[in-house]
Design a protein around this nucleic acid. Structure first.
Lengths: 145, 145
DNA sequence: TGTTGATAGTTACAAAAGCAACCAATAGCC
DNA sequence: GGCTATTGGTTGCTTTTGTAACTATCAACA
């Protein structure tokens, strides 16, 4: 991945990232779409609640880097299908605590298992060192592009 | 990036790829959007024509992994703004050869310069070895997720 | 030829994302 | 207290994407 001419798509980082992201996301999406009828944002919201406990919508926004309208709609959808519940916060009625229902928890547990399997498969051809390099790279790209 | 529990988002490849792809794409998009009013698909189509010469829409689809409806719409938009022209192919009137106009070529040249600068910046903190690892990784993810 | 099947590309409609305006509740400050 | 600004979240509208059906052209083989 040198910077010498001419620019090939194979060397252009945003392009490579997009191709890779799209391919893997679509692949994994098949699973949660088929089994839980979830959209990508919904799976992400579910994941955050499952992994980090009860959160407000705002906290999910900042942690997951998702716009509040997308989170709002995902929450509506997840609530409608009984994956999560909202509870008002006494001292500030603008907030709502979001938490998984048992059904949501079960879905989360299952999806995490599948995610791990999938992840392992994706990484199987790389050494621990290479994985570390890749992870560092991706985190840096995401951070400040 | 080990596979041991619990699954953290920092370890989940599709998530990392998405964050990185979105951040870098949006960043670069600012440039071609501001300067040429182009959408991402339009920039990609323009790039292919600039880099590989005249192509049919079909060829762009398969090379770039973009659905034909997206390409079709991008071509309409690029043609309307005089970045490319279509010419019928004599022996098979189903095809149309797409080629850049001088204006399209100029935009391509400029965008490639910018893309190179941007790419170089993205890669600046990594050694040649690390870049090779990352590239291999991304190509594999894109290929067979 | 003529019927059937594939291929290049477009169009029409539905799903999803992006953006801005909008409520309602709270905080800060006079 | 009362005015203004801020914050959490929702709604409505526009843009973009995804999907499927459609047109037109060509190929193949009876």
């Amino acid at each position: 991945m040198t910077e010498t001419d001419p620019l090939l798509l194979q060397n252009f980082v945003p392009y490579l990232l997009n191709q890779a992201a799209e391919a893997t996301s679509l692949d994994f999406q098949k699973y949660y779409k088929a089994n839980y009828g979830m959209l990508r944002t919904e799976w992400r919201v579910l994941f955050h609640l499952g992994r980090y406990g009860s959160l407000t919508a705002k906290e999910i926004c900042s942690r997951a880097n998702i716009h509040k309208t997308k989170v709002s709609r995902a929450v509506v959808a997840l609530e409608a299908r009984r994956f999560l519940t909202r509870t008002e916060v006494a001292h500030d009625r603008r907030h709502e605590m979001l938490s998984l229902t048992p059904k949501g928890r079960a879905a989360f547990d299952d999806l995490v298992q599948e995610a791990k399997r999938y992840n392992t498969r994706l990484l199987s051809a790389f050494t621990e060192d290479e994985r570390a390099t890749v992870q560092r790279f991706l985190i840096r790209m995401a951070d400040k592009a």
